[in-house]
Design a protein around this nucleic acid. Structure first.
Length: 435
RNA sequence: GGAGAGGUGCCGGAGUGGUCGAACGGGGCGGUCUCGAAAACCGUUGAGCCUUCGCGGGUUCCGAGGGUUCGAAUCCCUCUCUCUCCUCCA
């Protein structure tokens, strides 16, 4: 959510930034709402002040036992009752109108990110590793997985329908190993704090991180009103909702391994084969809560944590800066990390690391209090900055490991880093056996 | 799922219709004292919004939302969360 005061100060800059998102100018209508709201606030507060003062006199008359005076004043005060109630209602309405309008608008892009319409305009920032060369035609993960009997889309379809999968044996274990490896790395080496969170959340949490109110159709909702989280960004970031954090507690770096649920509405026909795009998948998520001055450095740190996982697994990747047209609703700047997928002969997204500035913290009212600078007085609370990133998408990482490690005979070499999570095994045979 | 109790400031905890943003205690911060520290004593210590160049003024907030009233932390209703007991249970 945007700071209306910043829009008041520089409406042109606000509209210019929105224009980079291909949005019409909004400042004029927002400022009109704001002016109406402020006028109403001033009016109703003036009336309230009068009422409060008069009420004190009523109380004083009562205390003195002057019944005639009491009745006279009481009648006087009650005259404005309806007027005040109406004005207060109108004020609340104007306040809500402004807030609703602000809630609908996406974050403003950072100055340093490229303009563009879609992913074709993203800018490569880094390339790591060399895609493996094969003396045969590399297969896609689903062909490999189905051949070894460890990846079963038919049975999953029977249970749940399209965009679900069932893993068994060596691949189920490899999937689990990947998640463990990521989590351990983030905790032991990257010094993130491990968190286990709910996956069912209230409206407020989804509003706080920006999934609501605009993108309700992308998520699932239970019959009693809980939302299934599309990412642990929702739970991890909302841990600080409504809080005022002490400066010494920042930055707060969190990680969690959770199930994620997405309806994939609007992606019909995209990646329909295999497990690249599922309704239910696992992800290890990273979230950082920090002071405004720290967020740029934290974004680089976070993206490094994600890249480190791929490097440890020996998977070639490239990192791109998303252009204005491809960036998500709440982000100011986003790095997508794309892993090389030999079966598809292309780089595919496996992580997305974003800084949201104070966009989410304003929505969820998450602040920090500057520590007292020698001489006492602690500073005024300010909004924190929030960042989130995948570290990594577990299912997609499984695909990458399979496709990059595949051999001509249909077996798969397991990265060294996963050996200890795989009971010492270093390969999965074409028949699905671990050896 | 059933029964009961309760949600007050950084923490504990008073407060059952008026002068309560809120006693008291603890903590934090500043000061006095001290070579320094401890102790003691004194002072201070919430957030949002509106208004003002500023000083300041006003207003709202005692889990959330409604209601009663001239006036609500205090009364009523709904919701929500926490705790205890029972029931069930991975």
């Amino acid at each position: 959510m945007h700071d209306i005061r910043l829009i008041r100060e520089d409406a042109a800059a606000f509209d210019a930034a929105l224009a980079r998102r291909k949005l019409e100018p909004q400042s004029a209508s927002l400022l009109a709402l704001d002016e109406k709201r402020r006028a109403l606030v001033t009016q109703s507060e003036t009336l309230l002040a009068e009422r409060n003062a008069a009420s004190k006199q009523v109380g004083a008359a009562k205390a003195k036992g002057d019944d005639a005076e009491f009745e006279r004043l009481r009648a006087l005060v009650s005259e404005n009752k309806d007027k005040i109630a109406a004005l207060e209602a109108e004020t609340a309405e104007a306040d809500a109108a402004l807030r609703d309008a602000l809630m609908q608008l996406p974050n403003l892009p950072n100055a340093d990110i490229p303009d563009g319409a879609d992913e074709a305009d993203n800018v490569e920032d880094k390339k790591w590793g060399t895609p493996p060369s094969f003396s045969f035609d590399p297969k896609q993960h689903f062909d490999l997985g189905e051949a070894m009997g460890c990846m079963d889309f038919e049975t999953a379809g029977k249970l749940s329908g399209a965009r679900f999968m069932l893993l068994s044996g060596a691949l189920a274990r490899l999937h689990r190993a990947l998640a463990q490896f990521m989590l351990d790395t983030h905790v032991d080496e990257n010094e993130l704090t491990e968190v286990w969170t709910p996956v069912l959340v209230r409206d407020e949490a989804m509003l706080g991180t920006g999934q609501l109110p605009k993108f309700a159709e992308d998520s699932y909702r239970t019959t009693n009103g809980w939302w299934l989280i599309p990412t642990a960004e929702v739970t991890l970031t909302n841990t600080v909702a409504g809080e005022i954090l002490e400066e010494a507690a920042l930055p707060r770096r969190l990680t969690a391994h959770t199930q994620c649920f997405r309806s994939e509405a609007g992606s019909a026909g995209k990646d329909t084969r295999g497990m690249l795009r599922q309704h239910q998948f696992e992800k290890v998520e990273m979230v950082t809560i920090c002071k405004p001055g720290e967020s740029d450095a934290e974004l680089e740190r976070m993206r490094g944590c994600a890249e480190g996982i791929l490097e440890a697994l020996g998977l070639a990747y490239r990192t791109v800066v998303l252009c204005t047209g491809d960036m998500g609703f709440g982000a100011r700047k986003t790095y997508d990390i794309e892993v090389w997928m030999p079966g598809q002969d292309s780089y595919r997204e496996i992580s997305s690391c974003s800084t949201c500035g104070d966009f989410q913290s304003r929505r969820m009212n998450a602040r920090w209090r500057p520590a007292p600078v020698d001489g006492g007085k602690a500073g005024k609370p300010e909004y924190v900055h929030t960042l989130n990133g995948s570290g990594l998408a577990v299912g997609r990482c499984l695909i990458a490991v399979m496709e990059n490690g595949q051999q001509e005979d249909g077996s798969i070499a397991i990265p060294q880093a996963l050996k200890k999570y795989m009971g010492g095994a270093t390969r999965i045979g074409a028949d699905g056996a671990l050896t």
